[in-house]
C-alpha cells in the first residue's frame, strides 16, 4: 500500500497551472525527495496532500484516504516553508498547544515535548519566547513540532533552510533515524547534495510537470561510459581499443585514466579481455556516474531562473510555489 499517491494531479490558480497532471507514489518507510525550481509546484503538491490547498483535478491520497482528510492529519507531521510561529509562545507552550490539537495526552506531552526539543537541540531554550529565537532555532522547532505526535508521514518543506552546516548534518542524521523507525518522509529541498545523501527516491518537478522520477542510483547512473586505469607505467593500448570500436579519450595529461564509451549493444567485457590478454593490469574500472545536480541542471537547462513569475497570457505554463 502506498503512503502517498497522486494520479494526474492538477492545480490551477486562475490562469496559472501550478500542477499539470502529476502522478507519483511514495511507499512506506521511504525518504522521498521532491526537487524543482522555485514555483515548480513542490509546495502546492504538499499542500494539496494536507488539505491546505484544494486540488483542481485528478486524485491525491494520503495514508489511503482522500487528501485533506481531517482525521488522517493526526498521523501526519508538517514543517511548512517560511513558517511563522506566534511570537507569544515559547517552544514548550507552542508544542503543548499543537500537541493538544493532535490529541496527545497531557502525560505524553509532558514527556515528549522536552524529549523532542532535546532531539532537535533547543531544549535549553524551551521556555524562552519564540520571538527571541534565531532562524535556525525556529527551523529546529518547526521540525520538532512535526515530530511530536510520532506521525506516520512527515512532510518537510526546506527543513535545513537557515540551519548551519553542523545543524544540517544533525537533521540528516535525524531523518535517517526516523526512516529506521519506519516513518515515511516527504522532503522538499533545493539542496541537491543533501537530497542525494538521504533520499531513497527523488522526483523532479519542472513547471508543474514531473519530468524525472526514480532512485538516486537510477537518476545518477550514466550508462555506457566507463573510467579505466592501468597499473603505473603501463600504457593504455588506445589504438587497439579504437579498433574494437570503443571511443576512448584520456582524462588527464599523463594518460593514466581513460574514458571508454560503449556504442549500441556493446559491453565493456571485450575490452577487459583484450587488456588481460596483453598482460596489462587493470587497477581502476567504474561505470561513470553524474551527480544529482548534473541531472537537475540538465532538466532545467534552458528554463528561466525561477518560474514563479506570474504569466499574463492565457497559455501560461509553469507553476507557483504557494
Amino acid at each position: 500500500m502506498s503512503v502517498i499517491e497522486t494520479r494526474e494531479l492538477r492545480k490551477t490558480y486562475g490562469r496559472i497551472q501550478a500542477l499539470k497532471g502529476v502522478s507519483l507514489r511514495v511507499e512506506k518507510g521511504q525518504i522521498y525527495g521532491l526537487l524543482g525550481q522555485n514555483g515548480a509546484g513542490k509546495t502546492t503538491l504538499i499542500k494539496i496532500l494536507l488539505g491546505i490547498t484544494q486540488l483542481t483535478d485528478g486524485d491525491a491520497r494520503l495514508l489511503d484516504a482522500p487528501a485533506g482528510n481531517t482525521a488522517v492529519r493526526a498521523r501526519v507531521g508538517y514543517l511548512p516553508e517560511d513558517h511563522q510561529f506566534p511570537g507569544y509562545h515559547s517552544a514548550y507552550s507552542l508544542m503543548d498547544f499543537y500537541g493538544q490539537l493532535y490529541g496527545v495526552s497531557r502525560g505524553d506531552r509532558r514527556q515528549k515535548i522536552p524529549a523532542t526539543l532535546e532531539l532537535v537541540g533547543i531544549a535549553g531554550r524551551m521556555h524562552s519566547k519564540i520571538k527571541t529565537y534565531s532562524k535556525g532555532m525556529k527551523q529546529r522547532l518547526g521540525i520538532a513540532q512535526a515530530l511530536l505526535h510520532d506521525p506516520d508521514v512527515i512532510f518537510l518543506d526546506e527543513p535545513t533552510d537557515g540551519v548551519d552546516p553542523v545543524g544540517r548534518k544533525e537533521i540528516r542524521a535525524l531523518m535517517a533515524t526516523l526512516k529506521d523507525r519506519g516513518h515515511t518522509i516527504f522532503l522538499n529541498s533545493h539542496l541537491l547534495g543533501e537530497v542525494e545523501l538521504i533520499c531513497d527516491r527523488v522526483a523532479i518537478l519542472q513547471r508543474g510537470e514531473l519530468v524525472r522520477e526514480g532512485t538516486i542510483a537510477e537518476l545518477t547512473a550514466q550508462k555506457g561510459v566507463f573510467e579505466l586505469g592501468l597499473a603505473p607505467s603501463q600504457a593504455f593500448p588506445e589504438h587497439e581499443a579504437k579498433a574494437l570500436g570503443y571511443p576512448v579519450r584520456a582524462l588527464n595529461p599523463t594518460a593514466t585514466l581513460w574514458e571508454v564509451g560503449l556504442t549500441d549493444g556493446q559491453t565493456i567485457d571485450p575490452l577487459v579481455r583484450m587488456l588481460v590478454e596483453k598482460g596489462l593490469s587493470l587497477r581502476h574500472l567504474v561505470e561513470k556516474k553524474v551527480t544529482l545536480e548534473d541531472v537537475f541542471m540538465s532538466v532545467v537547462e534552458g528554463a528561466e531562473p525561477g518560474t514563479d513569475r506570474r504569466e499574463r497570457k492565457a497559455t501560461a505554463v509553469g507553476g507557483s510555489d504557494r
Partner: peptide
C-alpha cells in the same frame, strides 16, 4: 489576520482540526 497570514495558517490547518 495574524492567524491566517502566510506561514501561520499552514501550521494550524495541517493539524487534525476543521
Amino acid at each position: 489576520p495574524n492567524m491566517i497570514r502566510k506561514g501561520s495558517v499552514d501550521l494550524l490547518i495541517s493539524k487534525p482540526i476543521g
